[in-house]
Each structure stands twice: as structure tokens, then as C-alpha cells.
């Protein structure tokens, strides 16, 4: 072996050893003690870093869990109760089960119900449009259809329906991380209880105009007629600013309010089909009983056209 090779081997090895020693001592000197449970908790978390828990990332949430005395105020919406109970078992605490929630879009003003009054030609961004003006229809409360919510959704739980021009929540993917709720300039998203078998009833409208104006702008607007309030046996519906709201903590999913709504502004999801009741058919013919479509049994031709976005994804 030539001396060059030997010198090379020796010099490189010594550089390596010296560097390793330096690294070792530095690592010792700057060692930070961390509760090992933080790592464990973090491992149990979904690592989505979505911020749905209210913390910037999963690590921060894990730290908060380890520090907390009980877990009642901490909840990972993405992982749900399963994740929280495994976190709780790591920390030796009790998990507080929370009801699984899901984002719903409180606007149903697809193009066919809500005629355009002008053409928007700005950046494809809802907030830009909302800061500029009320919207390209007569309704200043409704969905602008530019899909900023889809952009911010980290879980592929939203997509734009080409036909209606509005976003659709994919129920299986939605983690209730709150991103769409925060970003929507018209505050159209709401986190509601997912409900047994995904059954929910809610008012798909945010229009606070008087009935006449609302109706003129959109065929499926809530006109604040309070028929549903009278119909509801559980006092779950209130009206404010000509707009009804169903409180999901009181709603017993009895479905009584749905047929009385004169504008079909109340949506029900994932219910079995109703027996067709021809007498409650109204003008304009807008049948939003998505359950019919959800079950794949189309009783009326209209029902097909108006298939609700939310349920179609579950099939």
C-alpha cells in the first residue's frame, strides 16, 4: 500500500473521530429535557398539523395535552374520540368523548335557483370578491363559488361542483378542522353534529333580508316565515333577522320542519326516502329531499335534478 493511501485513511479517520467527539459534547451540553410523553402523544396524533385543535401543530397540541390537568378542553377533531382515548391512556387520564362534527354549507343557491345579476372578473378568490361587492347574484349572503374553501382544505374534503358552482363537503374526509369555517368570507360553513348515520337537518341559507327580497334573489332562500318554528315540537328553531336557525343540540331529527318550508330551504341528509306526498309540492318545483337520491330511488323527475351535493358523496 502506498503511503498516500495510508495517510489518506489516517487523516480522514482522525477528522471523523474528532468531529464525532465535538458533536457528542455539543449534544450533551445543549441537551434539553423533554417529557418523553410528548413524543408518545405526538405519535398517537394524526400528524395533519391542520390547526383544527386550536394549536399551530400536532406537537404543540401534544405539549398542551401533557401539561393539562384534564383533557376536557382539548380535542383533536381529526383523530376524533379514538385518538383522544389513546392520548388519554398514554397520559393516564380520562378522555372526554366529544360528538363528531362535520362542516355543512349553509347555502343552497345553485345557479338554477339564484340567477346571476352581473359578471365577476377578478381574482379567483372569495375574499377578494367579497371585499369588492355583494356577489354576482342578488343575494349578498350567498356562496360566491370561487372555491377558497377548497383551497384551504387540507383533507380533500371539499370540491367544487361544476354544475351548481358551489363547494361540496365530502363527509368521509371532513375532519371538522374549522379551516373552511374561518376562511369563508360569507360565514357559510358551520360545524354541526354529524348525527347518527350522518343524519342532519339544517337550514341551508344565511340570507338576512326580508322574505320578499330574499325570495326574489334566490328561490331556495329562507324567507323567515317561521312555519318551521311553529312546526318544531322541540323548540329547536329560532328566527333572527328573517333567518331561521336549527340548534343541533335541541334538534331530535324528527323531520317535521322539512316539508313545511315553503322555499325548501331546510335540508336533510342521509335520511331514508319519504313516502311521496304530492300535496306538499310547491312552486317553484324545487325538491331537495336528498334522501331520495341518497338511496338511489328517484321518485320524481325533479328530485334527480336537484340532487343534493352532500349526500351524493356518501354513495
Amino acid at each position: 500500500m502506498s503511503p498516500v493511501v495510508i495517510i489518506t485513511i489516517i487523516s480522514l479517520s482522525s477528522i471523523g473521530i474528532v468531529s464525532a467527539l465535538i458533536l457528542y459534547f455539543i449534544a450533551q451540553k445543549f441537551k434539553v429535557f423533554e417529557d418523553p410523553r410528548i413524543d408518545k402523544v405526538e405519535e398517537a396524533l394524526p400528524s395533519a398539523n391542520c390547526g383544527g385543535c386550536g394549536f399551530p401543530g400536532c406537537r404543540n397540541f401534544a405539549e398542551a395535552c401533557v401539561k393539562a390537568d384534564d383533557l376536557s378542553n382539548l380535542h383533536c377533531p381529526v383523530g376524533g374520540n379514538d385518538t383522544m382515548s389513546s392520548v388519554a391512556s398514554i397520559l393516564g387520564m380520562d378522555a372526554v368523548a366529544q360528538v363528531k362534527k362535520i362542516a355543512v354549507l349553509r347555502c343552497n343557491g345553485a345557479c338554477e335557483y339564484r340567477p346571476n345579476t352581473n359578471i365577476y372578473e377578478g381574482a379567483d378568490n372569495c375574499t377578494v370578491a367579497a371585499n369588492l361587492y355583494g356577489g354576482d347574484t342578488g343575494c349578498e349572503f350567498g356562496c360566491l363559488g370561487l372555491g377558497e374553501c377548497v383551497e384551504v382544505c387540507d383533507f380533500d374534503a371539499l370540491y367544487m361542483d361544476e354544475k351548481t358552482g358551489m363547494p361540496v363537503v365530502v363527509e368521509d374526509n371532513c375532519t371538522a378542522c374549522n379551516a373552511c369555517v374561518e376562511v369563508c368570507p360569507k360565514d357559510l360553513f358551520e360545524l354541526r353534529k354529524q348525527g347518527p348515520k350522518g343524519r342532519r337537518i339544517y337550514i341551508a341559507c344565511r340570507n338576512e333580508d326580508k322574505g320578499g327580497i330574499a325570495k326574489k334573489a334566490c328561490a331556495v332562500a329562507c324567507i323567515g316565515c317561521s312555519k318551521c318554528v311553529k312546526e318544531c315540537p322541540h323548540d329547536a328553531i329560532t328566527i333572527e333577522n328573517f333567518l331561521a336557525f336549527i340548534h343541533d343540540d335541541k334538534c331530535k331529527l324528527c323531520r317535521k320542519c322539512v316539508p313545511v318550508c315553503p322555499t325548501n330551504a331546510i335540508l336533510e341528509t342521509n335520511f331514508p326516502p319519504r313516502k311521496p306526498k304530492p300535496e306538499i309540492k310547491k312552486e317553484p318545483v324545487v325538491d331537495l329531499k336528498q334522501s331520495i337520491v341518497a338511496e338511489g330511488k328517484v321518485n320524481e323527475p325533479e328530485a334527480k335534478n336537484n340532487s343534493n351535493k352532500e349526500t351524493s358523496d356518501n354513495n
Partner: peptide
């Protein structure tokens, strides 16, 4: 309105 006006930011 017969023709729809275009709305865009300045």
C-alpha cells in the same frame, strides 16, 4: 337588466 355588467376590482 338585459346586459349584465362586469364587476372587477380596480
Amino acid at each position: 337588466m338585459s346586459t349584465q355588467l362586469t364587476i372587477s376590482p380596480s
